[in-house]
């Protein structure tokens, strides 16, 4: 589903403070695979996800989605396949817009934004129905600005927004980093459920080794812009949490 070939990305190129954030990575993520990425701070995890999403472009290498070369596509073009949940809840939702408006935009992620009114009664009901799945009681607040909700509620909604329109790839960059343990658990369970039910290909970055252990069917360890370890589903099953912990020793 996602093909990455010999990818390089550096920041401040040619200057004294040049950082080689991604150092020749090749990686194939199969359809319906749920890949977990772990690695210490600054190891290039977010950069890799940004490269897949197209919010930054590589110096060298090739990126394919669904066998199509998308290396030079910008993020707004790759949104045809990709939905994202960011570490910061503010990045995934527009605070001043209502929940309903946010969901409307998500519902036409892969489509042109036309000069016609798309929010009607049946759309409202559809959104309410979807939101009620979360069991947070937010379905009665769809006219409220999404900025009036808590970070956890916003992350949960962002997650739901990703499946409002056709979605093949879901990218999650530390989606629970800003949340309390209870909300974190809810977000991770919801994500896992959506990934399974909608047969998504997913990439999750996390510092929570328990989540890395519990979720996903493949795990890679990154360090200094390279992949140090790559464990498939069976190997991952054989891992213990202590093994994972020792990766960072």
């Amino acid at each position: 589903m996602i093909g990455i070939h010999n990818l390089y990305k550096s920041f401040n190129q040619g200057k004294a403070n040049q950082i080689n954030a991604i150092n020749g990575i090749s990686l194939n993520v199969n359809a319906e695979e749920f890949l977990v990425i772990v690695g210490s701070n600054g190891s290039g995890k977010s950069t890799l996800l940004d490269l897949i999403a197209g919010s930054i472009l590589p110096e060298k290498g090739k990126i394919e989605i669904d066998c199509l070369d998308v290396t030079n596509y910008h993020d707004y073009k790759r949104s045809e396949w990709i939905a994202r949940v960011f570490q910061n809840p503010f990045s995934g939702t527009a605070s001043q817009l209502s929940i309903l408006d946010n969901f409307r935009l998500a519902a036409i992620r892969t489509q042109p934004k036309r000069l016609s009114i798309g929010i009607n009664l049946s759309f409202k009901n559809k959104v309410k129905e979807k939101i009620s799945l979360l069991g947070m009681g937010l379905e009665n607040k769809i006219e409220q600005p999404i900025g009036s909700l808590s970070g956890g509620q916003r992350q949960a909604l962002t997650l739901l927004m990703s499946i409002m329109d056709d979605c093949k790839v879901l990218l999650l960059d530390e989606p629970t980093a800003a949340l309390d343990p209870r909300s974190s658990a809810l977000i991770m369970q919801t994500a896992d459920l959506l990934i399974k039910n909608f047969k998504l290909t997913a990439v999750l970055i996390t510092h929570n080794l328990k989540d890395a252990f519990n979720y996903g069917n493949r795990i890679i360890l990154m360090n200094e812009g390279q992949i140090m370890k790559d464990f498939d589903a069976n190997q991952k099953k054989a891992l213990s949490q202590t093994d994972l912990y020792n990766w960072f020793a």
Binding site: A53, S55, H74, D75, Y76, K77, S79, E80, I82, A83, R84, F86, F90, S91, G92, T93, A94, S95, Q96, L97, D101, N102, R104, L105, A106, I108, R109, T110, Q111, K113, R114, L115, S116, I117, G118, I119
Partner: peptide, 24 residues
């Protein structure tokens, strides 16, 4: 109020969000 207009309003609000939702 149109879909285009909502995308306009989102552009000034959260650029990362609206780009990831397919808006240049």
């Amino acid at each position: 109020k149109t879909d285009f207009g909502i995308a306009m309003r989102a552009t000034g609000d959260s650029e990362t969000m609206i780009r990831s939702l397919g808006v240049n």
